[in-house]
Design a protein around this nucleic acid. Structure first.
Length: 859
RNA sequence: GCCCAAGUGGCGGAAUGGUAGACGCAGCGGAUUCAAAAUCCGCCGGUAGCAAUACCGUGCGAGUUCGAGUCUCGCCUUGGGCACCA
């Protein structure tokens, strides 16, 4: 092999890698083609946000997908493995605010950079299908989808709360609210209502829940998280009559999942946004003051749950439905959200921690409705909250037997209440409709027009895309679309009169809820092309972070259903992802010192010298090492793959990110690990070089051993890849490399072994694999060669070594023929030294023989 | 606060309920070398012991089992998510 006239005598990744990348491109190896002669396989990694530089976590994510893509290609599939960018979102606007650029320029520059960083990694991607969600060609089709959804009744408007910064006069994202204050202004954030657009995902609550059962190749934890998120519950909805309610409000409607605790009720709580609270607020300044205070803080469930529980006694009293003489106080409480249930609850302090805290704070009675079957408890000190499946003894029984489980009691209570005309049993879901309105510039414009005479009218499809104006500035807070001099002005699509455009843009989750479908026909003039979608859908293997377990995946499942109803996806794609794999993060130690003011200072890995587990700066200062932290720009612990590739090559980076940790777990990037990987790849190269120069020789006795090891390796590595056990597969490749390096087999056998090794390595280290293939005179490209098959006959061992346990502890071993029957094994085991010594003449109580695994003698 | 995970040598980790620590890193010893780098060979959980071996050991505490890293229950710690970060 000669490159540039210099004979190559060592592993030179920088020379090998561009060469093979070019060869793959020339042969269009990874261009996805539709054809009837082969089965298709669609592998997709969650597309990246164009933050500016790729990150070692991206390398890991895309390498996993690439392993699958290359493996499936070699097993005879038409593979679709596309890449794109999730390109709308806040960071682009933040960058524009910080440095005065334009979100569009920033985003497209970042995309260019990231593509140029990804290409040298040699991913088998079909780059011809690339798009960014901020391309008007993409978001225009998204607008068409929105209009279709609107026609099908899947989109509507209603009021919803947002984080409002009263100083900057702008809506804040949850991450822009820090400890209840605006991130820039520092002002106390308020919850304020705005009219916003919603997708009716709640129409699909039951279906999105029940269809989880069919997702056999999804992680159980993801399905469980989604099921809990959807949160189907059965409960009782009923009204408390108000004793002294204001005009027009005779009742408060509440929803409870624990109607069996109704006899332990001690107060009624309503949300500060409840119509009754609003009514009282209008003419009582004290109520108004409380409500205003209660609306402070962010909108997240976490903020609400962690906030101090506060209540305001309205002075209103409600009558208990089963005891006309029993009156309960009505409180406005800051922890009750208008979005959940009816925005009103009854509190039962005996059996709920939050209600207990509230009752103690406001001196409300705490009574039990049930007690444990055994033991004493002090209900005043702590609430009694057993699992609903546990049997308890009811002390204030509403319905059913005295001793029953919570679940039984709830059902009995619902039946009893219905029979007595107190409300009715209802099934509710925790899942709320998906608010998609964002009061921001860098997103997909919502394609509707507000007309004085026609109301809210969808834009005509022939006028799509409704594009974002380029002439905007970010020097003042708020939505630039709102203050743009002309952009809003348009004519009504219905009557032609002057009208104004909607200035809300879409949540970026909308962009990522259908990109997988768009990849099947990225240039189509409709959202999808049904022939292409029919062929390529569904995604056979989807790979991404566990952080997307709920929102992105749930929204995509909803979108697939909605698109199907509108004729943009085939019926089989209601569940678009056949298999899901959630990978872990790449972490890296943080090196920290403290400056004179006591502030932490973070140091880049290249500034730190490691000696015996301690780290030092060049001037000798010791640094604190915080191990395994999520990579974060602000902590200076981000490892740049570009540097790694420059130093060691793409194959080293690819192999290392897969080898060191199970894919679902976080991996710690270490410089030493990368160095070791590079050495190993060099050894494999040298091994191939040595074999190529070996003299031809006759078949030796060592050939059979080598080939037996080879077939076992084929089996283990194939299984490893199929099961996402990349680290275990790589461990087998290390082991086989060691066997081959020490083998005394003939050249013929060694050549066969190194070529199979190259094939097995090719999904992980495709460039090195091609190089070895070529050195050994393989036909064509290894990327297009068929995956090796393990010969079952070569996988069977003649004998097996069984450990012998005595009372569960290993005390010896015997080697027996693999097919020896249980009785024989038992006899041999009993005769063994270890057992004889332990028995000392006595009889064993029991002998367990697990064929091929173990013998346990119980004495 | 609620939901979901994870925790195994100095480090990353392996292990269909069946020999805990495969494989790799670091370390130690040796070969090679004038020397080093590179490479190769060997050792490598803890305690005791010359050794054979024994005891202990998979975050903590219980339990199920002939047998538990693996299953059950209760904790602790760390991570992910909590609907406007993506």
């Amino acid at each position: 092999m000669h490159i540039g006239g210099t004979p190559m005598s060592r592993y030179a990744a920088s020379e090998i890698e561009p060469k093979w990348q070019q060869a793959w491109e020339q042969a269009s190896v990874f261009t996805a083609t539709r054809s009837a002669d082969k089965p298709k396989y669609y592998v997709l990694e969650m597309f990246p946000y164009p933050s500016g530089r790729i990150h070692i976590g991206h390398v890991r994510n895309y390498t996993m997908g690439d392993v699958i893509a290359r493996y499936k290609l070699s097993t005879g599939h038409n593979v679709l493995h596309p890449m794109g960018f999730d390109a709308f979102g806040m960071p682009a606007e933040n960058a524009a605010m910080a440095s005065g650029g334009h979100p569009k320029t920033w985003t497209y520059d970042n995309i260019d950079t990231m593509v140029s960083q990804m290409k040298p990694l040699g991913f088998g991607l079909d780059w011809s299908r690339m798009f960014a969600t901020c391309d008007p060609e993409y978001y225009g089709q998204q607008q068409a989808l929105f209009i279709d959804f609107l026609e099908k009744g899947l989109v509507y408007r209603k009021n919803a709360v947002v984080n409002w910064d009263p100083v900057d006069m702008t809506v804040l994202a949850n991450e822009q609210v820090i400890d209840g204050k605006g991130w820039r202004s520092g002002a106390d954030v308020e919850r304020r209502e705005l009219t916003q657009w919603f997708f009716k995902i709640s129409d699909y609550s039951d279906e999105l829940l029940s269809a989880l059962d069919g997702l056999d190749n999804w992680p159980a934890k993801v399905k469980l998280m989604q099921a809990n998120w959807i949160g189907k519950s059965r409960g009782l909805q009923f009204g408390f009559d108000l004793v002294n309610g204001p005009a027009g409000t005779p009742q408060i409607e509440v929803y409870t999942t624990r109607p069996d605790t109704l006899m332990g009720a001690s107060f009624i709580g309503i949300s500060p946004d409840h119509p009754l609270a609003r009514q009282l607020e209008a003419d009582n300044p004290d109520v108004a003051a409380f409500c205003q205070m209660a609306r402070k803080g962010g909108t997240t469930e976490e903020a609400l749950e962690k906030a101090e529980k506060l209540g305001f006694d309205t002075g209103l009293r409600a009558r208990h439905p089963f005891d006309a003489a029993w009156e309960l106080p009505v409180y406005i409480a800051n922890f009750i959200l208008m979005d959940y249930g009816t925005g009103a609850i009854f509190g039962c302090p005996g059996h709920d921690q939050r209600d207990h805290d509230f009752a103690r704070k406001y001196g409300l009675p705490i009574v039990d409705t049930f007690l444990p079957l055994e033991g004493e408890i002090d209900i005043q000190a702590a609430p009694f909250v057993p699992l609903k499946t546990e049997k308890v003894r009811y002390t204030r029984l509403l319905a059913g037997p005295e001793v029953q489980t919570g679940d039984q009691a709830v059902n009995a209570a619902i039946d009893h209440c219905e029979a007595n005309g107190v409300g009715h049993g209802v099934t509710k879901f925790r899942l709320r409709d998906w608010g998609l309105s964002r009061q921001r510039y860098w997103g997909c414009p919502i394609p509707v027009v507000h007309c004085d005479s026609c109301g809210v009218v969808p834009e005509k499809k022939e006028n799509l895309p409704v594009t974002l104006p380029d002439d905007v500035t970010f020097d003042v807070p708020g939505n630039p679309l709102d203050r743009h001099p002309t952009w809003r002005q348009c004519s009504c699509p219905s009557c032609g009169a002057p009208a104004t455009r909607e200035t809300d843009t879409m949540d970026t989750f909308v962009d990522s809820s259908w990109y997988f479908a768009r990849f099947t026909a990225p240039r189509a003039s409709t959202p999808t092309d049904m022939a292409e979608a029919e062929y390529w859908m569904n995604v056979d293997q989807y790979i991404g972070g566990i952080e997307h377990a709920i929102l992105h995946l749930l929204y995509s499942r909803f979108f697939a259903r909605a698109m199907q109803i509108c004729g943009h996806l085939p019926a089989k794609s209601a569940e678009p992802f056949d298999a899901l794999f959630t990978q872990g993060m790449v972490t890296h130690a943080i090196y920290k010192t403290t400056n004179a003011e006591g502030r932490p200072v973070y140091h880049y890995p290249e500034e730190v010298e490691l000696r015996e587990g301690r780290g030092f700066l060049q001037d000798g200062t010791e640094v604190d090492i915080i191990p395994s932290a999520k990579m974060s720009k602000s902590k200076n612990n981000v490892v740049d793959p570009v540097q790694i590739i420059a130093q060691y090559g793409a194959d080293t980076a690819r192999w290392f990110v897969l080898s060191d940790s199970p894919p679902e777990r976080d991996v710690e990037w270490t410089a030493a690990g990368a160095e070791a990987t590079h050495k190993h790849l060099g050894r494999v190269w040298a091994l191939s070089d040595r074999i190529a120069q070996m003299a031809e020789g006759g078949e030796g006795a060592a050939d059979a051993d080598l080939l037996r090891a080879m077939h076992k390796t084929i089996q283990d590595v194939t299984n490893g890849i199929e099961a996402f056990g990349f680290n275990a597969a790589i461990a087998r490749l290390y082991a086989f490399t060691n066997v081959l390096a020490k083998s005394k087999a003939s050249k013929q056998a060694q050549r066969q072994a190194i070529m199979v090794l190259a094939q097995l390595m090719s999904p992980m280290t495709p460039h090195l694999a091609e190089e070895i293939w070529q050195m050994q005179g393989g036909d064509g490209l290894i990327a297009q060669a068929s995956w090796p098959q393990a010969d079952p006959a070569m996988l069977v061992d003649e004998s097996v070594t069984l450990p012998i346990q005595i009372n569960g502890k290993r005390r010896g071993e015997i080697t027996v023929p693999t097919d020896m029957d249980k009785a024989e094994v038992e006899k041999l085991a009993l005769a063994s030294d270890a057992v004889q010594r332990a028995l000392d003449g006595a009889q064993p109580k029991k002998i367990i023989v697990v064929p091929g695994r173990i013998v346990n003698v119980v004495i």
